[in-house]
Design a protein around this nucleic acid. Structure first.
Lengths: 350, 350
DNA sequence: ACCAAATGTGGCATCGATGCCACATCGGCG
DNA sequence: CGCCGATGTGGCATCGATGCCACATTTGGT
C-alpha cells in the first residue's frame, strides 16, 4: 500500500522497540532533559538527590544513551579504530587483545579492521574510520599514506610494530635491534659463525631493525658476515620453507634465525622434512615468541616481544594523546624484548 | 581564563579540522543539500549528470559522510557488535576473522569486545552495543541473559559456537556430535576401547554435543563406556594437564581425546613430560584443529571445524536477518566438520 | 536583614544527514 | 495546443543528546 513509493523498499525488520530518550527519563524523574543529561553523565552539576532520582528513573525505564546522538552533538566519540594486517596471526591477535583490554578499561570501543596488508583495503578502512569520526586510530601501517590521511583529518594516530619513513605519528615498537642482537649473540656464544637469517622485508623499521641487530652482533664479535646468508623471502610460510631449502642447499649454515613467527613455521617444516636433528645438527631460533613455539619438540629459542603489552601501550598512548595529556612532540615507545632460550639452540656442530 | 567554568575541563586537543558537510558539497556543486544526499547515497533519484557533479565536488573538498549523523537520522547503523571470549585463542581469532571479512565485504564494521568468558563483562558489553544502536550482534554467549537483553531491545542476535538453553536467536554451531563421533570412531577402528575424554564443560551445547558424540560412538560399536574415563576439567591448559595426569595415574587408557584446542595443549604437555611415545604407547586427538597441531611431532589428529567459515556464516546470517530477508523462524546452521588424521593416532597397543 | 556569591535547574539552539513532501520542468499524447 | 504524468530538485522538520546561558533559589557574611 505504499502511497507513491517508487522503488518498493526492501522489507526491513523494524527496530520494533522504541527506545526511551532523555525526555522520557526527564518525565519519569520530574526534571528537565538538561538535568537528566547532567545527572547521568558524570561531568556537570546536579544535586546528589536529583542524580539518584534520575538514575533510578533511567534504570526503571531501561534508558540507554544513544551514542550517535551524543557523538554528533558533542563532537567526540569513544570508538577507536584498529587496523591490523592479519587477525589470524597470533602476533596481531595478541596486539589487538592488548589494545582491546586497555580500551575497554577506559570505556572505549574497538572497531577492528583487517587490512590483509593490502594498501587499498587499508585506505578504504581509513575512510570508514573517518566517517565514524573516531578520535584515534591504532594501525600497523602498510602505507605511509594511511596514517598521513588520518592525521590530516585531525585523527590521532599511533603506529604499532612498525614505522614507515618519516611520519610524525606516535609509534610503539618492539626493540627490534636489541632483540635481534641478543638472539644472534646467543648463537654466537654457542660457537655459531655461519648463521642464516630468514627475513621478508627490510623496508619497514621492523625488518630493518632486526637485520641491523643481526649485523651488529656479528660486528661486535668480529665475525665476517657473509651477505649471502641473509635470505630474503616472501611473507608466507610456504615461501619461507622454499627459501630455507635454498639456503641449506647453497650454503653451510649451523643455525637459522627467522625474523618472525610465520617464517619460523616454514623453516621448521623444512628442517623436519630433512630430518635434521635440532639443535645437534642445526640450531633454529625465531623473533616473536608465539605459543606453538613452546609446544614443538624441541621448543624454540625466541625473542619474546611482549605483544599484548605492546598493544596496551598503544592504547594507553593513544588515549593520553586524545585527552591532550601529552606534549606536541611525537612519542616513540620501545617495548623491551626478552630472550627466551629453549631447546632448539645448542652448540655449533664440529 | 575560563569565564565561570567550575571544574576546569581537561584540555582536550581539538579536532582542529572542520570537516566539510553536505552543505559545503551542495554549495560547491551548486545544488541543494537534499540532492547531495541522494546523489552520494546510491538509493534515491538524481540525474547522472548531477550525481557525477556532486561526487566530483565531494571528492574535491574531501567530504566524508558523518556516520553519527546518518545513523541518528536514519535509525540504522552499519556497526555490528562481536562479543567473544578470548581473542588470544586461535579459535576465537579465526571466528572473528571470518566475521570481519564478511562484514567488511558488505560495508559493515566490526566492534569487537573480549568478554573473557565473564558474565559481568558480557553484560557490560551488551549495554555498550545497545548504546551504539547496532542493528545486530554476534556472540559466543556466556550467559543466556545477554542475547536475551539484546533481543528484547530489538537487536538481532546470532549465537556462535554454542547455544545456551532455549534461546530464540539464530545460531551457528559446529556439528559437534558428528565430529566427536567420527573422531571417536576413528580411534575405535584402530582398536582402542579405553579412551579418555578431556572435557571442560557440558552445560553448553558445545561440550554436550561433543560428549554425546563420544558416547554415541561407543554405543554404536558396542563398547561399554567407563564413565570414569570422562575427565572433567577446568578451561585452562594447566588444569587440563593436571587432569590428564590424574587420568593416566588412575586409569589405563590407550588414547585421549581433548574436547578443544586449549585442553589439548595440557594433555600434550603431560604426555611429553612422561616421555610416552605417541602414538605407539598412547594416541592423542583433539577437537578443533589449530595451526600448532600440525607443527608438533607427531602432528595431531583433529576435527577441523572450519572456524573461519563459521565466522563467515554468522555474519552472512546476521546480515540477512537485518535486511529482513529471512522468515521469522529461528535458524540453526550446523557447519560440517572434517576429520583430519595425522600422526598422533595409531593402533591400540597390545 | 539585605546583598552578593554560590548553587542548581530549565530553555533553547544545535550537531549533520536525511525522510518526506511540494513543486518546477519536460516530454508525450490526444 | 493544452493537459497530465513522469522525473528531478529544493525546503523543512527531525533524529536524541548536550552546550550554553539565564534565572530561581539558597547560603553566608556583616
Amino acid at each position: 500500500m505504499s502511497p507513491r513509493g517508487q522503488a518498493a523498499r526492501a522489507v526491513v525488520s523494524q527496530p520494533a522497540v522504541r527506545r526511551p530518550t532523555v525526555q522520557d527519563v526527564a518525565r519519569e524523574a520530574g526534571v528537565s532533559a538538561s538535568t537528566v543529561s547532567r545527572a547521568l553523565h558524570t561531568r556537570g552539576y546536579a544535586s546528589p538527590a536529583v542524580r539518584a532520582r534520575v538514575q533510578a528513573a533511567a534504570e526503571r525505564i531501561g534508558y540507554v544513551t544513544d551514542h550517535n546522538a551524543r557523538n554528533l552533538r558533542s563532537r567526540t566519540s569513544t570508538s577507536i579504530g584498529v587496523l591490523i594486517s592479519d587477525l589470524r596471526n597470533p602476533f596481531y591477535a595478541d596486539l589487538a587483545a592488548g589494545i582491546e583490554e586497555e580500551l575497554r578499561a577506559a570505556e572505549y570501543q574497538m572497531v577492528l579492521v583487517n587490512d590483509s596488508g593490502n594498501p587499498a583495503d587499508e585506505m578504504q578502512a581509513a575512510e570508514t574510520l573517518l566517517a565514524m569520526r573516531v578520535p584515534g586510530v591504532i594501525v600497523t601501517p602498510v602505507t605511509a599514506k594511511c596514517p598521513q590521511v588520518l592525521q590530516d583529518n585531525g585523527v590521532h594516530v599511533v603506529c604499532a610494530d612498525r614505522e614507515l619513513g618519516r611520519s610524525n605519528s606516535d609509534v610503539v615498537l618492539s626493540d627490534n635491534k636489541t632483540g635481534a642482537r641478543e638472539l644472534t649473540e646467543h648463537l654466537i656464544a654457542l660457537g655459531h659463525t655461519r648463521i642464516g637469517l630468514l627475513i621478508d622485508e627490510t623496508k619497514w623499521s621492523t625488518g630493518a631493525g632486526r637485520l641491523a641487530g643481526f649485523r651488529a652482533a656479528h660486528l661486535d664479535n668480529f665475525i665476517d658476515l657473509d651477505e649471502d646468508l641473509i635470505a630474503y623471502t616472501s611473507f608466507d610460510a610456504d615461501a619461507a620453507r622454499l627459501t630455507t631449502r635454498k639456503l641449506l642447499n647453497d650454503h653451510e649454515v649451523t643455525a637459522i634465525i627467522s625474523a618472525n613467527n610465520v617464517l619460523a613455521q616454514g623453516a621448521l617444516a623444512e628442517l623436519k622434512d630433512r630430518r635434521l636433528k635440532i639443535p645437534r645438527q642445526i640450531s633454529l631460533a625465531a623473533y616473536d615468541d608465539v605459543p606453538w613455539m613452546s609446544l614443538v619438540q624441541p621448543a624454540l629459542t625466541t625473542v619474546d616481544q611482549s605483544t599484548v603489552e605492546m598493544g596496551r601501550s598503544c592504547a594507553r598512548l593513544l588515549l593520553a594523546r586524545i585527552r591532550g595529556e601529552l606534549p606536541a612532540k611525537r612519542r616513540l615507545i620501545k617495548v623491551p624484548t626478552r630472550l627466551v632460550v629453549r631447546g632448539s639452540t645448542g652448540p655449533a656442530p664440529r
